[in-house]
Design a protein around this nucleic acid. Structure first.
Lengths: 260, 260
DNA sequence: CGGTACCTTGAGGTTACTCAAATCCAGTGG
DNA sequence: CCACTGGATTTGAGTAACCTCAAGGTACCG
């Protein structure tokens, strides 16, 4: 029973941030040792989230700063009519809901696409750290401005690209993000369903499906349900390059966080 | 000759931030008196920009934090093929290029749509202030997270709305931003041309034109070239409400800055 | 083994785009 | 002050892309 506790991710700091396999991806990396000590003391490695469970709901008070440790999470908003609007997908290492830092309330929802684990720094501790350290503020500023640049790029592009390009970009972006996490960039599983992808890209399920099938017919990828196999990355890149600002859109925030 | 200097906006601080007519819109408002003293000492009220001139170019080193004082400015990026992608329009009181704070280099371009004046805080001074004041960092964090929320909302919406809705939102957004600046929200002049609007909304010139004409035919607005007269705001709001997250999209960042 | 949700495929309709031409407008020079 | 000119805007006709509606197929779970 007591070793259950040390083996699993229950409770407080059974592992330091430095030892975490995601350290290189996490913003903890950008902090100096003093701050990190404080961070280690505050961080809670939370109970895992089951697929379909929510990390938080829209309007809910922000409990803390969250970094995903495993699994994947869908961020979305709701329209007045109750329609979902998918705003992004989070992967391990991503900080979630940073844009609520100032308002202290979540503007959207976050739902686990599969069983997931995460770290949480209680907002009170985090605020205290922010007040004490201009450096930490700068790190946050940097994270946000990167996330900003990323979202801006996406905005510039989503409103004016055709379905093929959007889907190609989506695949490439995901692939690259996985690569950064040491997963195979050419063979992966989509943890979200077609509805989520379509919604995220501003397309319909049918168009996404047809587009994927089309890519397969052209020998660019192989799709079997949620499994994707990238066969011709160059061609995929070629498709995505259309009308893109020089900086690679799919190259999501370089340093440590961001969703997509 | 010497009074020319005090009358115009040349040179250094001939006016304090507190006296500025834009104070209520500017982020200077959120600073405490000590910081503001420093700010007043650093701020440069710059030479006016002529229509068509650039505030900065993409890739250029960030010279300082800029707040627009009069006129209007178009933000845009360039694609690999040299196509413009309009990312937003800045109005007096807006801070411009904040997302470059961390990278110190501008990711996009900023061009005056009409003769414009602006304040600039040299980046070195600003950085020093950031290091000294956690509070200022928090203000910046807040600004950015608001800008983030705004852009995110735009993103959610631009990729999935029809032309009528996009144009309606654009008009309403502009109208509300002008209202906040004590200008008539029902009668205003578009300082950007149709091409910029279309580009910003991810539409073509022709579609924007047709949509505006359509609104006029329906008695919602009156358009004569760049002059717009809102006749039926309720109907415009009704058009824009489609598929919107509860928070009003066009209600751009509440406090002090943001573009559009 | 059956059910249910997810995904694919097909046919037809709609919206916004493309290409082309006419009109309007601001700024210029006579 | 007016005519002129080039750019901006509007308008029209035809087309392509994506959406909608509908049906069939597939995979996973009890």
């Amino acid at each position: 029973m007591s070793d259950q506790r040390t083996l699993s991710e229950v409770g407080h700091s059974q592992e330091s941030c430095e030892q975490c396999s995601l350290f290189a991806l996490c913003f903890a990396q950008d902090m100096d040792s003093g701050q990190r000590e404080q961070l280690n003391a505050s961080v809670k490695r939370q109970q895992p989230l089951k697929r379909g469970e929510h990390l938080f709901h829209g309007g809910q008070r922000m409990k803390g700063v969250v970094v995903l440790r495993s699994g994947s999470i869908k961020g979305y908003d709701l329209t007045q009519d109750g329609d979902e609007i998918v705003s992004g997908f989070f992967l391990p290492g991503d900080a979630i809901g940073l844009d609520s830092l100032s308002s202290h309330a979540h503007s959207g929802f976050a739902e686990a696409l599969e069983d997931s684990r995460y770290c949480e720094i209680p907002i009170r501790d985090f605020e205290r750290m922010l007040e004490e350290s201009a450096r930490l503020n700068q790190v946050m500023l940097k994270l946000l401005s990167e996330e900003m640049a990323e979202t801006r790029r996406l905005l510039l592009v989503v409103g004016r690209l055709d379905a093929k390009t959007r889907v190609a970009m989506f695949l490439l972006s995901l692939s690259r993000r996985l690569a950064r996490r040491k997963q195979d960039p050419d063979r992966f599983r989509l943890t979200m369903d077609r509805r989520d992808i379509a919604n995220y890209l501003g397309l319909t399920i049918e168009t996404v499906s047809r587009t994927l099938t089309g890519f397969q017919r052209e020998g660019i990828i192989e799709v079997r349900g949620k499994l994707v196999n990238v066969l011709d990355r160059d061609q995929l890149v070629g498709l995505a390059r259309q009308a893109l600002p020089e900086s690679d859109l799919s190259e999501e925030a370089r340093s440590s966080q961001s969703e997509c």
